[in-house]
């Protein structure tokens, strides 16, 4: 399990990244909507987003819609790549395990 990306290899962040990966390439989602989809608290989601942002996987843009401040979140190209690599690594780990099924 050592090769797995530690930033993504945590349940909450994996859910965040998987959700963002479902957005079309050049789209961003607002913070409240992402929070709603994930069912996480704002504080918790912020913590994980910061971690993902530090790794360069997620871009957080603060902007305004009229007078209301809006926070927009998207997966970066690097983040998308890291998620794909993580998914492949997981699949690779599962492939041999299927052969020698243990319980």
């Amino acid at each position: 399990m050592t090769e797995l990306d530690p930033v993504i290899h945590a349940q909450a962040r994996l859910r965040v990244v998987a959700t963002l990966s479902a957005l079309p390439d050049c789209d961003q989602v607002t913070f409240p909507r992402l929070q709603e989809i994930l069912g996480m608290t704002a504080g918790n989601l912020s913590v994980h987003l910061r971690r993902l942002e530090e790794a360069g996987y997620v871009a957080v843009t603060k902007t305004h819609r009229g007078r209301t401040p809006v926070t927009l979140i998207a997966l970066t190209r690097r983040g998308r790549l890291a998620f794909e690599e993580y998914t492949e690594a997981i699949r690779a780990l599962l492939a041999p395990a299927d052969a020698k099924e243990t319980s």
Binding site: A10, Q11, A12, H48, L94, A97
Partner: peptide, 13 residues
């Protein structure tokens, strides 16, 4: 709790 890795690769997938 949610900072922990998924239990195993199958759970992650």
């Amino acid at each position: 709790d949610d900072d922990l890795p998924p239990e195993d690769p199958a759970a992650a997938l």
